[in-house]
Design a protein around this nucleic acid. Structure first.
Lengths: 117, 117
DNA sequence: TTCTTGACCTCAAGTTACTTGAGGCAGGTA
DNA sequence: TACCTGCCTCAAGTAACTTGAGGTCAAGAA
């Protein structure tokens, strides 16, 4: 499929996909005889994973390392697993931050209620 | 107190605090006779709130609006409340994203397990 | 067949939200 | 007196995109 469809499926926008490709984040993107990018279903799965990693705060350098490992094939699975486990810990931290912030907002809103009445 | 202590208390770093002040995000920061900033406990509470809002993804433009309202005093409490309620919805969305990403990571990790054995 | 439209391309510049570095003053200590 | 620390401003650098200019190419309308 072409870039518009890939973008619609993975959640990233077209410009971001092109940008990610220049940064080496998307291994094995093909080109048609017209010079335009062609994305396989595997490419789209990969992009979808990147979308969620980015959305939850993985830095680009880590994604770059992750992509480089992915490009090297099955021998790197243990390393990739480690990266995802580390990211999992980040998710836990973010969840904790959300909790803390929600607490603070609730307290603040309560105070506002008091001042409004 | 001076900027180093304020930074230690609110979680923002010194350069960020100065930057926020130039952007109008911190109303009523005093200066000593030496020209250095002096932060009141109220300033620090405000900075701490900004810290958590930023940490959970509030864009600077919104913080700017929020700060401008805060600077105008009690008449703007209803508007500020609205901003925090909106942010609360963003928190819920982020939590949902974390859930989704965790699901995806779990699935991916399971596949890796399969390939490793 | 020529014209237009739409989707794609590259490359350069702009944007957001900081971060880092250069150069300088002011007050306290050795 | 010389230095160190903590603060100051202003300019430039960075990350991760986003937008805009200018161009190609294939397919359908006139």
């Amino acid at each position: 499929m072409r870039i518009a469809e890939a973008a619609a499926r993975c959640g990233l926008n077209i410009a971001t996909i092109r940008y990610y490709e220049t940064k080496g984040l998307i291994p094995n993107v093909g080109r048609g005889s017209d010079g335009q990018r062609r994305f396989s279903p595997e490419n789209v799965d990969w992009l979808t994973l990147l979308y969620w990693l980015r959305e939850t705060g993985m830095p680009m350098k880590v994604m770059q390392r992750f992509a480089a490992l992915y490009a090297q094939g099955d021998a790197t699975i243990a390393d990739r697993k480690q990266i995802l486990l580390t990211h999992s810990k980040l998710l836990a931290k973010r969840r904790h931050d959300l909790d803390r912030c929600e607490e603070i907002l609730a307290r603040k809103l309560e105070i506002y209620e008091g001042e409004l009445r």
